[in-house]
Design a protein around this nucleic acid. Structure first.
Lengths: 159, 159
DNA sequence: TATGAAAACCTTCCAAC
DNA sequence: GTTGGAAGGTTTTCATA
């Protein structure tokens, strides 16, 4: 995988079909993908390389069952802060980046400043995260939402 | 990829190292993985097959840059309902499953009943989703949280 | 369980169209 | 831009330790 060369590549119908196949199963052979998208090996190979070089395809990975690796407990944490300085943000961001149980974090528009998604083994592990976080950065208000059931979970983007 | 044979496999240190490597880059060759985890091709190959068969590894996929495919707008939607019957839940679940812009949906403990994560091209596309959803199922209260900045986003589970 | 090797298969690149 | 193919690499299986 090389550097990102372009940022906004225009995608045609063949590119989109290839992205659907790769998102569906990245272990398929080029021949299989080519057959399914109605093309052949070389053009598909050239497109995939172009999509990787352009940064449309960022990574190739494996998705694990969270329960199977004892990370069956999922929390969404809504955070409000009274601090809005750059240095506070930097420390908050560093704290999130450093913690592997944090899978997602977004800065929001509106009353709630941040949302953080976590996967942990149990509620005690969440509390350990919470205690560590508030020890590192000052936070005004925290609401933890505990997931009882994952109704849908996908990385598939409808291209 | 075969059927799920066991549910809770006990993972040893070698399994964990392999899962880290595969999560990090699933396009690596067996030889590279074997070298990095301090083993050799055949044992690593057998472990990977075992992890897939057991359902620990669920899929092999490619992660796309949302901006590059014009899905740069991310919303978290907090939903409260007054309906708690099985038939309502079924229709709600079906509506979420059918919509490709819904990437995640969880049933929650506490005051807020559901959280839904969406990726769309812009705020109008969110409104279209919202209108379609409330037309299909009765909802008591909806709060949409708009992401201004994605601070962290990973599928990597710390095994 | 690990090693090494053989066979089948795939990726990558390239020449010809 | 497509096709087919050659060369090298990788996966998968298996015999052997």
């Amino acid at each position: 995988m090389n550097e990102v060369n372009e940022k906004k590549l225009r995608l045609d119908a063949l590119d989109r079909k290839i992205l659907i196949e790769l998102q569906d199963d990245a272990s398929q052979s080029l021949d299989d993908i080519a057959r399914k998208v109605g093309s052949s090996k070389t053009p598909v190979w050239n497109r995939i390389r172009k999509l990787k070089d352009a940064g449309v395809i960022t990574r190739q990975t494996v998705i694990l069952d969270p329960d199977a690796v004892d990370l069956g407990t999922c929390f969404f944490v809504l955070i409000r802060t009274s601090e809005h300085e750059a240095s506070w943000q930097q420390r908050f961001l560093a704290a999130l980046q450093a913690r592997p149980e944090v899978l997602e974090a977004h800065r929001l528009a509106g009353e709630i400043d941040y949302i953080v998604k976590l996967r942990v083994s149990d509620a005690r592990a969440y509390d350990a995260f919470y205690q560590a976080l508030i020890a590192e950065v000052k936070i005004f208000n925290v609401t933890a939402l505990l997931s009882m059931e994952e109704l849908k979970s996908t990385t598939f983007l409808p291209v």
